[in-house]
Write a protein that binds this DNA or RNA. Structure first.
Length: 280
DNA sequence: CAGATGCCCTGGGCGC
DNA sequence: TGCGCCCAGGGCATCT
């Protein structure tokens, strides 16, 4: 579910709420969510009593840096939520898999009905960017790694891949999923199936600019929440950017630019929305 | 290498 | 009401 703007919204809220606080206890209710460990007691032991120094984001992953240099990594998958509970007595919602109790009161709860999300504690990352080895495969982050358009254009031309698939390829660029790839491509006037090595420099520049602007705009509006409300921020609030979607989930509705009908197709099994007139 | 498919899951919506 | 489909912000393995 959550893509870069939703994860960044959550990261900023966590920055305000939990930086400098200590993890008092960790309760694992659903072991499917805590992966990559031999036993559930191992991550618990590495978290309890540790201080959260800062919260970073790489693509769709949240990285909690601990004072031990260990890193708590959380990915929300399709239906994961991180919710702030004011006290320990708030009723525990269904599909709550992990409860992190903080020392000055309050909890952080990880919910995930579909259990595609995951959480694990990584060893200290010794590399320059302090990226856990498990995430070494991820490509650049469109917002925190400022890649200039010239370099972006070179990356595009080194591949021969349909644009939407490339935008969604986390090894190419990290953080863009099904909603924002469609919106970025509409904003840049490019079709989902254009091959990446067919773009003119001007088109590559447009795509680069649209990607950054659209993601920033979506963050300003706290991301997108769809009809099923799978995305909520840590306070349980929905985002507002869904009202700004210009093609995603708008099949048959008029294109905001030319008023012709928005088309829907499939690409790699994912619904894809575009305007056949405005996107070339 | 590029692209398509199926799987991991639960839940909501819709047609019958 | 109820049942059986189809669909869903992700990611990965495995085919062609």
């Amino acid at each position: 579910m959550p893509e870069l703007p939703e994860v960044e919204t959550i990261r900023r809220e966590l920055d305000k709420e939990i930086i400098g606080r200590k993890i008092k206890s960790v309760e694992i209710l659903g072991s499917r969510s805590v992966r990559r460990h031999e036993s559930p007691s191992e991550p618990v032991a590495r978290l309890q009593g540790k201080k959260i120094v800062q919260v970073r984001r790489l693509g769709k992953y949240l990285l909690f840096d601990l004072d031990t240099k260990d890193i708590l990594v959380i990915h929300l998958g399709m239906s994961g939520q991180l919710l702030r509970a004011k006290g320990t007595k708030e009723p525990v919602a269904e599909h709550t898999h992990v409860i992190i109790t903080l020392s000055q009161g309050g909890q952080l709860r990880f919910l995930d009905p579909r259990t595609f999300g995951e959480m694990f504690v990584s060893d200290p990352a010794e590399n320059a960017r302090r990226i856990p080895t498990q995430l070494a495969h991820l490509g650049f982050d469109p917002l925190s790694d400022q890649i200039g358009w010239i370099r972006f254009a070179a990356m595009l031309s080194s591949r021969k891949t349909q644009l939407k698939a490339l935008l969604m390829d986390q090894e190419f660029v990290a953080g863009i999923g099904n909603i924002y790839s469609d919106e970025i491509l509409f904003a840049s006037g490019l079709r989902y199936d254009r091959l990446s090595n067919s773009l003119s420099p001007q088109e590559a520049r447009r795509l680069h600019r649209s990607m950054i602007e659209l993601l920033n705009d979506a963050i300003q509006m706290h991301g997108s929440s769809l009809a099923d409300d799978a995305y909520k921020d840590i306070y349980g609030e929905s985002g507002e950017f869904q009202g700004q979607h210009r093609v995603y989930n708008r099949e048959g509705l008029p294109c905001p630019r030319c008023k012709r009908k928005i088309m829907r197709t499939k690409l790699a099994g994912r619904s894809t929305f575009y305007c056949a007139h405005c996107q070339l």
